[in-house]
Amino acid sequence: MYTDRNLAEQMQKELLASGVLTKEQLKMLQDDVTEVNVKEKIPASQLSNFTKYWTSVGAWVNSQGGNITTLSGNKTDGRQGGDPKAKHIKILYNDAFNDVRQWIDKPQFSIVKAVSNHLRFIDVMTEEE
């Protein structure tokens, strides 16, 4: 089982480990995640590591009782507390997981948008209470 925070922390670790971004870039983007900023601050050569990152996150989700092939705002197998009830949490899950899964193998897939959505998920889910 995982919590939203556990998932977000693992996503951040995997973004760094896969080379999608550096700690310095992560710090620059924190609190101001937009597609424009991601595009300006992360070179395409690093963004191209997104598939490696996605595979690693999927393996982690699956190891925690989840299912990366169905993970969305309405289906969060393995999530402590079950599916999210709050609309803003559902939206974050849909943007970070459902949208990527639907578009990743298509020519219209935007890595910049995917990374932006994942960084927003991380930012919200790791926010201090």
Rank of each mutant, 00 (worst) to 15 (best):
L7Y: 00
L7Q: 00
L7D: 01
L7C: 01
A8E: 00
E9V: 01
E9G: 00
E9T: 01
E9H: 00
E9L: 05
Q10R: 05
Q10K: 01
Q10V: 01
Q10I: 02
Q10L: 04
M11Q: 03
M11E: 04
M11H: 01
M11Y: 03
M11V: 04
M11L: 06
Q12L: 08
Q12E: 08
K13S: 04
K13Y: 02
K13E: 04
E14W: 00
E14C: 02
E14Q: 08
E14R: 00
E14S: 07
L15N: 01
L15Q: 00
L15F: 08
L16P: 02
L16Q: 04
L16E: 05
L16K: 09
L16V: 05
L16R: 05
L16W: 04
A17D: 06
A17N: 09
A17S: 09
A17T: 09
S18V: 00
S18E: 07
S18F: 02
G19T: 06
G19W: 03
V20R: 03
V20I: 07
V20K: 03
V20Y: 02
L21M: 11
L21V: 07
L21R: 00
L21H: 02
T22N: 05
T22G: 04
T22V: 06
K23S: 09
K23E: 11
K23D: 12
K23G: 10
E24T: 11
E24A: 11
E24Y: 08
E24S: 11
Q25R: 07
Q25D: 06
L26R: 04
K27R: 14
K27L: 13
K27Q: 11
M28C: 10
M28D: 12
M28E: 14
M28V: 14
M28G: 05
M28T: 10
L29A: 06
L29C: 08
Q30I: 02
Q30E: 13
Q30T: 10
D31F: 14
D31K: 12
D32S: 15
D32H: 12
D32N: 14
V33K: 06
V33W: 08
V33P: 07
T34M: 12
T34R: 11
T34E: 10
T34V: 11
T34Y: 12
T34H: 11
E35V: 12
E35S: 14
E35K: 15
V36M: 12
V36D: 12
N37Q: 13
N37Y: 10
N37W: 09
N37A: 11
V38S: 08
V38M: 11
V38C: 10
V38D: 09
E40G: 10
E40W: 11
E40F: 13
E40M: 14
E40C: 13
E40S: 15
E40L: 14
E40D: 15
E40A: 14
K41W: 10
K41Q: 15
K41M: 14
I42M: 09
I42Q: 08
P43R: 11
P43T: 11
P43V: 13
A44V: 15
S45Q: 15
S45F: 15
S45C: 12
